[in-house]
Write a protein that binds this DNA or RNA. Structure first.
Length: 136
DNA sequence: GCCAACGTTGGC
DNA sequence: GCCAACGTTGGC
């Protein structure tokens, strides 16, 4: 079953533009167990929102998992997971955290509930709602 | 095995 | 720049 995700990144470290410029990005360096579980559950073809944290605070684009189940290359213990993603589309209109927080149907999503989680799951109905908010 | 202290993340 | 939330570490 296809699942949906949200990947957080600080734009001054690695933003949407960086991903588009590279064509493919490796999502590694995650050192949180819940985020790691999400990474490990990803499959090729899954879609993910790309969210800018600290600065911007908005979902800016959609990317797709191009390689799953990778062991994090930046980790020598081999315990952490990573995936590769390719950029798909930039949202016609970014969806801000503010809008997400105001929308009560999104009050339950991982992004709101656990704000420090760098890889969050998005449920299918939350996914389509956010797409609608983005003007897709 | 509990919990206080500390470090980090991320929204404001 | 501040601080709340959360995770991790280490003393007991």
């Amino acid at each position: 079953m296809e699942r949906y995700w949200l990947l957080k990144s600080e734009p001054f470290k690695y933003g949407w533009d960086d991903l588009e410029a590279e064509g493919e990005g490796t999502w590694d360096g995650v050192r949180n167990h819940r985020a790691k579980n999400n990474l490990a559950a990803m499959e090729v073809g899954d879609q993910a929102f790309f969210y800018h944290s600290r600065e911007g605070l908005e979902i800016v684009g959609i990317c797709e998992v191009s390689e799953a189940g990778i062991t994090d290359p930046t980790d020598e213990t081999g315990k952490w997971a990573a995936v590769k993603v390719v950029p798909k589309t930039k949202l016609p209109r970014p969806v801000t955290l503010k809008e997400i927080k105001v929308e009560e149907r999104l009050a339950d999503c991982e992004l709101v509930r656990q704000s420090r989680l760098s890889v969050a799951e998005i449920k299918p109905d939350e996914w389509s709602l956010i797409l609608k908010m983005a003007g897709v």
